[in-house]
């Protein structure tokens, strides 16, 4: 936990330094393109959170792993936080670049919103059920259904015929300079490290809470 937290702090500091003092200003979008270095890694981290949550959900169903239920829940919780940040930073970037806060005609935006709302509903399902095996199974099935939306959301922009959302990663590789790509990679590593740190801390807190509840029951209070 301490290692992931320290790594997250170091990488975040390095990425901010690179974004503002190393990466060149984009010739097409200007200064506002610097939002890209946080917006895209946050979005990719949200996908990673949902993917990790789905993997843990699979373990709940496949291996009957009780610990994986809590791990899946925490990963999806983190995914929703990163998803909300993706929508917020994306909206600000859209306003700066396109002059609008939101564009309903954009498949990429709408599909990400659908994915985000789908995972928001996960919590409604989870907290409407009594804790136990049934809740773990239903939550796991829901988390696995949600992960199907990730490739659809990721590929939506490439499937779309008409779009204003920029395409950076094409079949010809990343459409940016070496320094921009390096800055992007450090930012992505920073966001993934931040997720690892937040995930470990939240999981430790939840487990501690559970142990205290158990101790309270043992003491009969």
């Amino acid at each position: 936990m301490a290692v992931s937290s320290a790594l997250a702090v170091v990488l975040l500091a390095a990425s901010i330094a690179l974004i503002f003092f190393y990466a060149p200003t984009d010739a097409d979008q200007g200064f506002s393109q610097r939002i890209f270095y946080f917006h895209v890694p946050i979005a990719l981290t949200a996908y990673a959170c949902f993917g990790w949550g789905a993997w843990k959900a699979l373990r709940v169903l496949w291996k009957r792993d009780d610990r994986a239920d809590l791990e899946s829940y925490v990963a999806i919780h983190q995914g929703v936080v990163f998803g909300a940040l993706t929508l917020l930073t994306g909206s600000i970037w859209a306003r700066a670049s396109w002059g609008v806060w939101w564009a309903w005609s954009e498949n990429q935006l709408v599909l990400f919103l659908v994915l985000f709302l789908f995972y928001c509903a996960y919590f409604m399902l989870r907290f409407s059920l009594e804790p136990g095996r049934a809740r773990a199974n239903m939550s796991a099935v829901y988390a696995l259904f949600g992960v199907v939306l990730i490739p659809v959301s990721f590929l939506a922009i490439r499937l779309s015929q008409k779009f204003i959302h920029p395409v950076v990663f094409t079949s010809h590789g990343p459409q940016m300079t070496g320094s921009q790509f390096f800055t992007f990679c450090v930012s992505l590593a920073a966001m993934l490290a931040l997720f690892a740190a937040l995930y470990n801390i939240e999981l430790a807190g939840k487990r501690l809470d559970s142990s205290l509840r158990e101790l309270r029951e043992l003491l009969g209070t």
Binding site: G30, S32, I35, H39, I42, A84, L85, L88, I92, A96
Partner: peptide
């Protein structure tokens, strides 16, 4: 200005954390 939007985006992330 563009600078304000960039600052707002980074501030949102900072405040969330």
């Amino acid at each position: 200005s563009e600078w304000h939007y960039v600052a707002a985006a980074y501030l949102v992330v900072f405040v969330a954390v």
